[in-house]
Amino acid sequence: MPEPIIQLRDCTKVYHKGGERILPLDRLSLDIEEGDFVALMGPSGSGKTTLLNLIGGLDSPDEGGLIVCGQNLAELSPRGLARWRSRHVAYVFQSFNLLPVLTAFQNVELPLTLMPLSKAERRRHVETALRIVGLGARMHHRPDELSGGQEQRVAIARALACDPRLLLADEPTGDLDAQSAQEVMDLLTALNREHGKTIIVVTHDPKVAQCARRQLHLEKGVLARDTASEPARRGGA
């Protein structure tokens, strides 16, 4: 059995707010297998975003440790962490994922500029990624010329462009109508199934969570429930 892509061991995160101690994560341990599709659920303030940020190396735990993609994040310098992130992890946020001044093409190209690629290679990657998300025709539009759903798809294309092993999405459908949300989830499902990406999606929407294979419920910083859902639609495995 291969090593899990994410191993959290007793991770604790503490915030102090006006003398009050908040524990968004309380000695949380968790393994996630490569190629899994996880929905992270829980009430507001339960620590979902905090957890996602730890996994993506945007934040570090106050106690405990984690190994992601075979790398113990505690061993990396901030600079090393940034490089590691550019290679292994990609983020999709709820909204305003894109730089408004850049076109869809340029936004997707952005992370690729951190890699030793020629211009032609970059162009090829960008075009492929945009085609996968179905926006090949909108390459040269700027974010304000795209719908919310299209913006999210560009963000996903950007996440794909570097071919990361891990895709972290924080309420990617939170701002979308049902139709666009479904499109985005279909896209994520396809990425998981056809491209083998490990995906973690934070969501409040049970319908969205249905698309995932595994559902984690956080409550006050601890894991309340961990269920494997029937691979919902499209039959599947």
Binding site: A82, W84, F96, L98, L99, P100, P111, L114
Partner: peptide
């Protein structure tokens, strides 16, 4: 601010 956050999440360094 927001854009700088996005850049960092993509893997751009502080420098």
């Amino acid at each position: 601010t927001r854009e700088m956050g996005i850049l960092k999440s993509i893997g751009f360094t502080d420098a």
